[in-house]
Amino acid sequence: MTSNSHADAHTLEANAGGHGHDDHGGAAHGSLKSYLIGFGLSVVLTAIPFWLVMTGTIADKAVTALIVLVLAAVQIVVHMVYFLHMNTRSENGWTMMAMIFTVVMVVIALTGSLWVMHHLNINMMPMHDMSQMP
């Protein structure tokens, strides 16, 4: 059973990879084309948010902030795919599993911290006001 699934993984890789390397389930490699596509995309995805904030083209700051955040998220994915060569096949999928686990942890930690501390701030406000009272 183990050897069978191993053989399958190798055939899949040979079929799907098709860029002349013998990965053997190892880390994936990039090509000149993929590096240049990634670079081009990331230049555009960096230039747009800087331009938006520096010129203040969109008057509504909340809208600008949202666009900047979305572009950053897209750029992170671009870097992951084109520079770090993330895919579901390398190391038999374990890099992807490790990354999914990390993303879950990061989302819990970030949203949890910001959410809890934001509410703490709101709940502290009346106390703060009371201390001002005579």
């Binding site: 490699h29 990039g30 000149l32 590096y35 240049l36 990634g38 670079f39 990331s42 520079f83």
Partner: peptide, 9 residues
Amino acid sequence: SITYGFAML
């Protein structure tokens, strides 16, 4: 980043 990519290639 891109020059390191070229180094890898």
